[in-house]
Amino acid sequence: MTDLMEFVVSRFNYWIYVVLMMIGLYAMISKRNYVKKLIGMTIFQTSIILFYVSIGVKSNATIPIVDHHDVVHSEILVDHYANPLPHVLMLTAIVVGVATLGVGLAVIEKIYRQHGTIEEPELLADVDQT
């Protein structure tokens, strides 16, 4: 029983990331509204970022800012600090993500200005008509 519990505790994070990622993927495939598709893309993106960040987690570790006291008086213990590398990679990914979200929203506005709708079936009908 405790084995099973330990197994679930050490793995349930990954399962929920997969669930979040699949929610985003489903929204991107099957939603007809473009804003909904973009929200799905954001969810997909954050779930991947979450996966990367959680790779760097160490139990009983603190945030990756070096304690000055440690440097002067003792050795820096690697296990004492969370892994900073995924944080760096994902920090820039978030900011670039909002810039690309802006591009997507600009395209949506352009579509609305030209066709008067942001629903996919209505847009396809409108394109067929002209």
Partner: peptide, 22 residues
């Protein structure tokens, strides 16, 4: 496993950063 301090991503490059950055 989640929170494993000795997993592969926590081993090679990141230990250099933690020990040498300051």
């Amino acid at each position: 496993a989640w929170g494993d301090a000795h997993s592969a991503p926590n081993q090679y490059l990141s230990t250099y950063y933690i020990q040498h950055t300051y």
